[in-house]
Amino acid sequence: MNPLKQDLLDAHSVGVVVVSFGCQGGASHWIQDTDCQYEMLLDPSRELYAAFGLGASLKRVLNFGNMLLYAEYVADNMQFPRGLPSIQDDMFQLGGDFVLDRDRKVLFAHRCQSPLDRPSVQRILSAL
Rank of each mutant, 00 (worst) to 15 (best):
Q88M: 09
F92R: 05
F80Y: 02
Q113E: 14
G53T: 04
R82S: 12
S45V: 09
F108T: 11
G55Y: 04
A71C: 00
Q93H: 10
Y38G: 00
V74I: 11
D97C: 10
V16A: 03
S45G: 07
E72V: 11
F80L: 15
C112I: 03
D7C: 04
F80E: 09
I87L: 05
D35G: 08
R111T: 01
L8P: 02
V19A: 05
L84D: 08
H12G: 05
M1W: 05
D33M: 09
Q122W: 02
P85C: 07
L125Q: 00
L4Y: 07
G65S: 13
N66H: 01
H12Q: 15
D35N: 14
G96S: 02
I87R: 09
S57L: 06
C112S: 15
R102L: 06
D35I: 02
M67F: 08
L54M: 15
Y73R: 06
G15E: 15
A50R: 10
F64P: 09
L4W: 10
P44R: 02
F52L: 15
V61Q: 03
E72Q: 15
Q32E: 14
L42Y: 04
S20M: 01
G15A: 12
L68Y: 13
R46C: 07
V61K: 08
N66E: 01
V17L: 07
S114N: 08
L9I: 13
S126F: 00
L94S: 04
M1E: 09
D43H: 04
H110Y: 03
L42G: 07
H12M: 10
W30C: 06
D117A: 14
L69D: 10
R123Y: 02
F80A: 14
Q24G: 04
R60T: 10
D90R: 12
L128E: 03
R102A: 14
R60A: 15
C23L: 06
V16E: 01
R111G: 00
Q93C: 12
D33Y: 03
S120H: 11
Y49D: 05
S126G: 00
V99I: 09
V99E: 02
G55C: 06
H110I: 04
V19G: 00
R46W: 03
V106T: 09
H29V: 06
S86H: 12
V19L: 14
K105Y: 05
E47H: 03
S45C: 05
Y49T: 02
R60S: 15
H12E: 15
N63Y: 06
D43L: 03
F64D: 12
R123W: 08
A11L: 11
Q113K: 13
R60E: 15
D43F: 05
E47Y: 05
L9N: 00
N66S: 07
D7A: 15
Q24V: 11
F21W: 09
L125A: 01
L54R: 04
S114T: 14
L94G: 02
H29I: 05
E47P: 01
C23P: 06
A56Q: 12
L9P: 13
A56W: 10
L48H: 12
N66K: 13
L9M: 00
R123Q: 14
P3N: 12
L4V: 10
S57F: 03
V74N: 10
K105G: 13
D117R: 02
Q93E: 06
Q88H: 08
D76I: 10
